[in-house]
């Protein structure tokens, strides 16, 4: 009896290639940065004001990142998580391997077109509310690989980005400053969205 193979690898390659080509074709314009929180003072719902404040405070100190270390920036990210800089102080030490349990996608490193569909899928699998932090020059704009054939020239072509932390790579202090900016944003996030 002939055993039917669950998949044919050349078919998988074709599917993957088509997916990447489709993503390249669809990624012409960057996603606008989510900035609605900036005018929250005007639009704040009076009824929920104090509840929102407390929930926002709770949310900002329990942001769990999904592990998305793509290149060398990941080492600075790990450094920031380890005992010297220790970002568990902000309640965000639990790097999750599952996107379902994470609130923040911490993209650290060069994003290639081959990785981009996987990154987008993981982002789509994360539950709302979710945030994205782009760490390092390559992630933000492609960096010194911007002219390359295989590198995505900017993470915001693939997913909307909340905080950009520039540097090559940024030091843990820089990353922690980025976290603090993100916390400000998380705290001001509205419970009821328009």
């Amino acid at each position: 009896m002939e055993i039917e193979k669950p998949y044919v690898s050349s078919e998988l390659d074709k599917t993957e290639g088509a997916e990447i080509e489709a993503l390249i074709a669809a990624s012409k314009e960057p996603y606008p940065d989510p900035v609605s929180w900036l005018d929250e003072e005007i639009q704040r719902n009076v009824l929920l004001a104090s509840t929102e404040h407390i929930i926002g405070w709770a949310k900002r100190f329990s942001v769990w990142p999904v592990a998305m270390g793509l290149a060398c920036c990941a080492f600075e990210m790990i450094g920031a998580a380890a005992s010297r800089f220790d970002f568990s102080r902000f309640g965000m030490e639990v790097f999750r391997a599952s996107p379902r349990q994470a609130d923040l996608m911490l993209v650290a490193g060069t994003l290639t077109w081959k990785m981009a569909p996987a990154l987008k899928r993981i982002y789509d699998q994360m539950a709302e509310p979710k945030w994205v932090l782009a760490m390092g020059a390559c992630t933000i704009s492609g960096g010194c690989f911007r002219g390359s054939y295989s590198v995505v020239p900017g993470l915001n072509l693939i997913v909307p980005v909340d905080v950009y932390v520039p540097g090559c790579p940024p030091r843990p202090e820089g990353l922690i400053y980025g976290f603090m900016e993100l916390h400000r944003k998380v705290a001001k996030d509205k419970l009821i969205k328009k």
Binding site: K14, E16, K114, R146, S148, Y149
Partner: peptide
């Protein structure tokens, strides 16, 4: 490394750099 359907071979001297993604 590259995906099925990529045009050309990038380390050849005559490969032209056109950035995918519109940039």
């Amino acid at each position: 490394f590259l995906w099925d359907g990529f045009q050309g071979h990038p380390l050849r001297k005559d490969f032209h750099l056109d950035v995918p993604g519109g940039g």
